[in-house]
């Protein structure tokens, strides 16, 4: 009996990395995050994300490598309470998207990043179907910029065209720049030296980014927080994005009837999610 994990390891033969020179990791503290979306615009600016326009946005074709998802604890006035969670490519160590691609356009690089090779991508969109986090975006069109908005394009980042898949890169251009500099100075990249655009913009310092291989790094310390968890952990994707749970207590007050649960939880038929033990497959 082999596990999915074993199969993945097996599958990752030559050309894949299972040990990483740097293991870039992001921690998002949901107790700090306010949902302000500064990170969303920062990513758009840094990574040459196009404006798709209202019509295409209505068709669900917006391009946002990082988005803020909103979930209501309770959606009944006056107990209504809203939660925000930034969602981006989780740079899964056991990435479902990677097994899907017939031409190896998406692969794992030596730093543990889930990378996308644009000029290898043939646009089957399989990876987007396999990704449980729904963070892959397909270029259905070659988007253009109303002149002179193209002058703001980041010269370090490729502008994508019709037919290729794209997604969060952990701002690989910034990582490479930091590594480049470190290599010239014959040292490792220092903690905090490589900052993705979202982390740098975030006004509450909710996003911490760094190398998990460095046990002293700020992000490694975050991973030890008891609030740390992985989204959809039961899928065994081994994300490189770790969330720190919001520490809000249940609502207080006299009309607090203890009902803060998701309505669907109480009414819906139980949904079975595989836990660790179901990792084994026949």
């Amino acid at each position: 009996m082999s596990t999915i994990r074993d199969k993945l390891r097996e599958y990752r033969t030559a050309g894949y990395y299972t040990e990483f020179e740097y293991h870039w990791t992001m921690a998002v503290d949901l107790d700090r995050c306010t949902g302000c979306e500064a990170c969303v615009v920062a990513c758009q600016a840094e990574n040459n994300l196009p404006i798709v326009g209202e019509k295409r946005m209505r068709q669900g074709r917006e391009m946002k490598w990082i988005r803020i998802e909103r979930y209501w604890d309770d959606s009944e006035y006056p107990n209504a309470r809203l939660n925000f969670i930034p969602m981006l490519c989780q740079h899964c160590d056991e990435a479902p998207c990677e097994i899907a691609c017939p031409v190896f356009a998406t692969y794992h690089n030596q730093d543990g990043l889930n990378a996308q090779v644009y000029n290898r991508c043939i646009g089957t969109r399989t990876c987007a179907v396999y990704c449980p986090y729904e963070v892959r975006f397909f270029n259905w069109f070659t988007y253009t910029w109303d002149e002179p908005l193209e002058q703001q394009l980041n010269p370090d980042v490729t502008v994508r065209e019709k037919g290729v898949m794209e997604k969060c890169t952990f701002c690989v251009q910034r990582i490479n720049r930091a590594k480049d500099l470190a290599r010239d100075e014959d040292r490792r990249v220092a903690d905090g030296e490589a900052q993705p655009a979202c982390a740098q913009a975030c006004p509450t310092d909710a996003i911490v980014f760094g190398d998990r291989n460095d046990t002293d790094s700020a992000v490694s310390r975050k991973l030890e927080d008891p609030r740390a968890y992985e989204v959809l952990k039961e899928l065994n994707t081994h994300p490189s994005v770790v969330y720190l749970k919001n520490a809000r207590a249940p609502l207080a007050g006299e009309e607090d009837d203890g009902h803060h649960g998701d309505e669907s939880e109480s009414h819906a038929s139980p949904v079975m999610w595989p836990d660790e033990s179901s990792e084994a497959v026949a």
Partner: peptide
């Protein structure tokens, strides 16, 4: 807009 028991928020 609901987590539907997926424990997305922790």
């Amino acid at each position: 807009s609901r987590t539907l028991g997926r424990q997305i928020l922790g």
